[in-house]
Design a protein around this nucleic acid. Sequence first.
DNA 1: GTCTATAACCAGATAGAC
DNA 2: GTCTATCTGGTTATAGAC
Lengths: 206, 206
Amino acid sequence: MSAAKSEEPTLLEGIEPASVRALMAAGIECFADKGFNATTTRDISARAGFSPAAVYVHFPSKADLLFATSRLGHESALKVLEEAPGDEEDPAHRIELMVAAFAAWHARNNRLARVVQYEGRALPAKHRAEINTVKERFQRCIESELEAGIAAGQLTAPDVPGTALAILSLCIDVARWYSPSRDRSPEQVGALYSELMLRMVGATPA
Amino acid sequence: MSAAKSEEPTLLEGIEPASVRALMAAGIECFADKGFNATTTRDISARAGFSPAAVYVHFPSKADLLFATSRLGHESALKVLEEAPGDEEDPAHRIELMVAAFAAWHARNNRLARVVQYEGRALPAKHRAEINTVKERFQRCIESELEAGIAAGQLTAPDVPGTALAILSLCIDVARWYSPSRDRSPEQVGALYSELMLRMVGATPA
DNA sequence: GTCTATAACCAGATAGAC
DNA sequence: GTCTATCTGGTTATAGAC
């Protein structure tokens, strides 16, 4: 656990005050590295440059800090998925843009994405339920695009819910293996994955 | 955490003595449910039907119990991947069998698979290194099948290492979302995923 | 808002009886 | 080999000074 150089560049930008932003950035790094339960409040405070008690000035508990970061991550990922197609109308092109953006998000924000995907267990039931309502929207997002593409005769899928799940799953698992130093750029991952996805739904472009 | 009904049916069969088998089964359930760090040695012992100190009779530490289960899982998954094609020689059919088996393994053994994929961080460096040597073989396995299929003119891929990684990733992420009560059977997951994979590499069968 | 100091608790691991 | 009892260290969270 070295110094706190790598703050999440864009996602935390709007968070105020700066001490909360620093604590959230530190929490993301620590939770991604070691998991929620192996991270101590001292780890987080130290990485953010504060004394051991600092977490409790801004959050009621360590779990509330996790909730804040987890919600931020879910909302950001959902926003990316929903806004990716813009005003594009062609169904195959829409889903191509969505997958490229969603996969790239999981690469670019892979630390936060790991927290989002793998640390949800540690949330208290009430907070986990709130997070789960967001999760359901991801699946519906992809399914409706697939259905539109199939209706338009552009795509084929052996099983729409299963294929939608597989597409999401493929993008989400980027968070598990992606390493910014070792792998392709987030944009390259997005480009490769959207191409593989198009092949998967029978819409090979070139 | 309810009673210890659901032992891993086949994988732990050969483990002796029975107390070690029970501890490993309990460890898999607990680690999969709550993660390594949130699981206490008391959780494991209680679930296996022993007193709080039982773990230490058979394992030097909680981390050694994790290592034993993690190694068992990696070896089992690798064996499934390597042995799936049998004496089949057609490259497209070989990779189809491999993906069907590997995806189904992650569904069937989804608790153990979660431990294998998400709890490796908690292993001490030496044990993690041993596990990583196994992990590398998965990627090579898929890559060489892709290359054979491309050489035979049966498959196409925009990027062999990237496509191999995506195929593995797709199968591995089954462990994250699969629930035996809610989802398709492991065999159905394998069938769907091998079909999606064949489309992805340009070998649509029907 | 941040610090130092500490309370209260809990978990990994061990000792020694049976 | 399993148990009960316990040691020891570390963790969350709080109190109260500055």
